[in-house]
Amino acid sequence: MFEQTGIPERDMIIEKFPPVERIDRGPVAIVECYKRIPCNPCETACRFNAIRVGEDINNIPVTDHEACTGCKVCISKCPGLAIMAVDGSKSKETVEISLPYEFLPLPQKGDQVSALDRAGNFVARVRVVSVLNPKSFDRTPVITIEADRKHMYDIRNIRTEEH
């Protein structure tokens, strides 16, 4: 169905996630790139060699979750906005999810926004814990929200009140 809808199946998503034990140690990137296309800026962007595409730029990126520091630079550099990050180190009940978000108005830290799944369905109301938008991110801000752990594999987008 993915090739008809653009909505990945749950097992595809889980396969891209590191083990929970890694997530609980701190932020880590998840590269949701499922199909071979000629593209490798994720590899170029990573200073820690945690994302490898290799000589054939059509290869699907492989993430070394141990080498990843969760710096989030790759999130803003992926032309397909296919990268997110999760961080389970802050609390046992919640997880912080970082997402690329290229819409105006940008939410502010502390705002309540609606978290959406990969089909755009409402999942939960969540709180924005940070908005990263430095010049180096080149107009692809990265929004971090705090969500209930049970939604870790579901949330992939947000909607602000105005939008």
Binding site: E3, R118, N157
Partner: peptide, 10 residues
């Protein structure tokens, strides 16, 4: 590209 499709779907 399916990454573009996923951006729209979500």
């Amino acid at each position: 590209y399916l990454v573009h499709a996923s951006k729209i779907a979500r």
